[in-house]
Structure formats: C-alpha cells, structure tokens
C-alpha cells in the first residue's frame, strides 16, 4: 500500500529528508513520529503529491507519486493541523463540493455525508457556516472532507494539534475505527502517547533521517524502555551520540 525507497528532499543546502525507505501495508495504522522539524510533514507532502522529492521514489496504493499524481490523489485523503475551511460555506456545502471533485453524484454525496455525520457526530455543524466553528468542529469537518471518498490511504499530519479533549477523543476513535482491510492510515504526531494508542507500527524520524521502524512492542523491547516516549529519547540520544563521535 505504501512503498518508499531512498527518498530525499533538500531545500537549497538544507536537507529536510535524507534517504528514507519504509513500507506499510493495508489494514494498519502506521505512525510517523518525531519532533517538529523531523521531516514528517515533508514526507507526507511528498506522498500527497504536493512536493517533488529530490531523490528516490514513493508509491501510494500502487501509484507512483511522481508519475501518477492524479491517481495518487484519488486514492488518498489528507488532514493536517493547519488545514482550514472556507468561512462562508457550511460543512455540508464543503463536503458536497469535494464529493463532486471525486466524481460522486449528489445522491452518493448525501449518503456519504449522512454516514460521516453518524461517525463523527457532526450534527448541526453540517449546516452552520465554517466561520462560526470551534477548533474541534472545524477539525471534524476537515476529517470528513478528507474521507468523503473513502480513500485507500488516509494521511493525518498532526491532526490532533490544538484540539480539546473531546475532539481529540473523537479523532482517535475515528482513526482506530479506520483500521480495516484494504485501507492504510498514516498518522503523524509528535505526541508519543497518541501513537501508542492508535498505531500498529511506527517510524521514528529525527532531523530528516529515519531512526527506526517497527511495531511498538518490538521497539520497546529493543530499547528496553517502558514507553514509546522514553524509547524515542533513547534512540535519538544514540543517534546524536554516533553523530558526535563521527564528527
């Protein structure tokens, strides 16, 4: 479902992503972990066809991101923390217009909106203009927009940032429910406890490099730590130590 080989991205002399390779299969929630600036957003933007990689290749749902960007975009749904909504449109109008972009008929769109209303508890939000939404309401509609076409790969980039406890719980439950055959969820966060709750496997990125990939219990065993956060620090310290020794 996701195949990344030797992916790199540079901006001038700054390297945002260096030689990253990983794979993820259907039916899993795959976490991308790392602090701010680790390269998570750059990696996800490449997968979403918004950025071109400097080197390497990636395929999403069997489509190469460089050669078949439109097919990739049909297969994905994207949510990031900075995404917004047109303030003067209602949630329902936003969802209908995006359903149209994916070739859905009005009837199909309305059926899907009803399903998402039930799953995300959208309620009156649907017929309220987005300019009047709270952060939580907005994020629910942003998620509904991303999954309006039931994508094969759902990309969530810091999707829980800024959410209150209720909205965050709805999001995490939704991600957990999205784990099903034929579907892959990529969940990027710097909050390790979120990853521990919803992710099956994780990749840890630090300063643009892949530190490790594996199932959470496996990483905990390998590092001898009790929590993913401690495991992350142990791995990163090890990496920084190697870098210092090498220099």
């Amino acid at each position: 479902m996701l195949d990344i080989q030797n992916l790199s991205k540079t901006y001038g002399r700054y390297t945002a992503l260096r030689d990253v390779s990983l794979t993820a299969g259907e039916g899993e929630v795959f976490g991308l972990l790392g602090p701010n600036g680790a390269g998570k957003t750059t990696l996800l933007r490449i997968l979403a066809t918004l950025l071109q990689p400097t080197a390497g290749r990636a395929s999403v749902a069997g489509h190469d991101v460089g050669r078949e960007p439109e097919a990739v975009r049909r297969a994905i749904g994207v949510v990031n923390g900075g995404m917004g909504l047109p303030a003067r449109l209602t949630g329902r109008e936003v969802l209908r217009s995006f359903a149209g972009f994916y070739g859905m008929t009005r009837a199909q769109a309305d059926t899907r909106v009803a399903e998402l209303d039930a799953a995300l508890e959208l309620g009156r939000t649907l017929d309220t203009r987005a300019g009047e939404y709270s952060t939580g309401m907005k994020q629910k509609v942003v998620i509904a927009r991303a999954v309006i076409h039931d994508p094969q790969v759902l990309i969530l980039d810091e999707a829980a940032s800024g959410l209150d406890i209720f909205a965050r719980r709805t999001l995490l439950d939704f991600v957990a429910a999205a784990r099903r055959p034929g579907r892959l969820t990529l969940y990027s966060t710097h909050v390790m406890s979120e990853a521990e709750e919803v992710c099956d496997r994780v990749a840890i990125l630090h300063q643009g490099e892949l530190v490790t990939v594996g199932a959470i219990p496996e990483i905990l065993t390998r590092t001898g730590e009790r929590t993913l956060e401690r495991a992350f620090f142990a791995l990163v310290r090890g990496m920084d130590g190697e870098a210092t020794r090498a220099s």
Binding site: R73, V78, M83, G84, L85, Y102, R145
Partner: peptide, 13 residues
C-alpha cells in the same frame, strides 16, 4: 485559511 492545500490534494488538476 489553509484551504488551498486541501484543494490541491484532491483529484482536480
């Protein structure tokens, strides 16, 4: 508003 990115990741060219 952050709405352009959502448009650009849809299948619209």
């Amino acid at each position: 508003r952050g709405t352009l990115e959502s448009l650009l990741v849809s299948p619209v060219r």
